[in-house]
Simulated scan of single mutants.
Amino acid sequence: MLEILAITTPIFLLIGAGYLAMGTRLVNREQLQGVATFVLYFALPALVIRALTHNPLDEVFQPHYLLAYGLGSLAVFTFALLLTLKLQGKPLSEGAMHALGMSASNSGFIGYPVAAMVLGASPAAVLMALNMVIENLLIIPAALILAEAGRQSGAGIVTVARKTVVRLVRNPVLVGLAAGLVLAVTETSLPGPLAQVVEMLANAAGPAALFVIGGTLFGLQVRGMVNDVGQIVVGKLILHPLAVLVLFLLMPAADPTLLVGALLFASAPMISIYPLLGQRYGMAGISAAALMVGTLAAFVTLSLGIWLMTLANLLPIR
């Protein structure tokens, strides 16, 4: 178990550093936002480009992974909708936000750093790129379209869908994904200085992302939201990885690295922009509290998950 903690503890110490920096006022919200912008617009796209250009394209494109992880995430998304709408009687916009919190992982800011520690930077970056496709082209658009439709009483779905597509086209990670795919398909190598810049930016992605998460958590509170927050957190940290595991087991045997990576990413807490999205639909407090509780609880669940994968001989600790 000490070997497991050696993997997860540095991750959460970096998160703690961000929290401490905010708590001691070494940085303020504007400065933290600047770091977050650097990660989102420079480091993560560079990470995706490096992953796509440093690996053969047939190793990057994993339809088995996309199908299993995508269907597992979609299953949890659908379950959350049915639970909140049919059994709990919540409005559509709120149900969509619950579904988003339970099925969309923080692949860039937490999933990748953890997977890089366990599997190595190169395979972790490839899997992060695949997860970004699923989250940005399937889960997040579905949640936003449903939430906006609920907010507008079912009107304007086509308009909402069009605006969502426009936002996705401008997503810097997807722009990096497209650029990396073009370079990989055409077998084009970046010039030396530019390749070095991409390498340096990619190396900064993990630590900077974890620092941002820690700073974001400072000041968040849980007030009278135990049931909703608990439901979202349990769905994300337990139900999501279980659903992904079941889908992998139902499909033909695949590389164990893909299964381990999928479970690690599915075990990450919800996306970091979850409170920002939830705020638009009256769930600012619940989504922020869920992010805080989910991130803190992930230290335990990720450590436990890595330990269980080690016992199952999926992940021998060296």
Rank of each mutant, 00 (worst) to 15 (best):
L237A: 07
V175H: 01
L264M: 13
V118K: 12
A21H: 04
L138Y: 08
A184H: 10
V133F: 12
P113F: 02
V244D: 03
P56W: 13
N28G: 12
L249P: 07
L137P: 00
A121N: 12
P207W: 11
F42G: 11
P172Y: 02
N171W: 05
G108A: 05
I139P: 07
P241D: 15
G215S: 04
G120A: 05
W307R: 08
L190I: 08
G230S: 11
G192D: 13
F79Y: 09
L52W: 05
V198A: 05
L190R: 12
P252Y: 04
L127E: 09
L245I: 10
Y281L: 04
L264T: 10
V76A: 05
L138M: 13
Y19I: 11
A253M: 14
N28K: 02
I49Y: 02
K236G: 05
P45H: 03
L304F: 13
A142I: 11
R170V: 13
V185D: 07
P275T: 01
N55H: 10
T8V: 09
P141H: 09
L20A: 15
M22D: 03
K90L: 11
L83H: 00
Q279I: 11
A178Y: 06
L32N: 03
R318K: 14
G285W: 07
H54A: 15
Q231G: 12
F248K: 11
H98P: 00
E30F: 12
F211I: 08
V300M: 13
G282H: 08
L217G: 03
F12Q: 08
A68S: 14
A284I: 12
L194H: 09
L44C: 06
L137G: 05
Y19Q: 09
A179P: 02
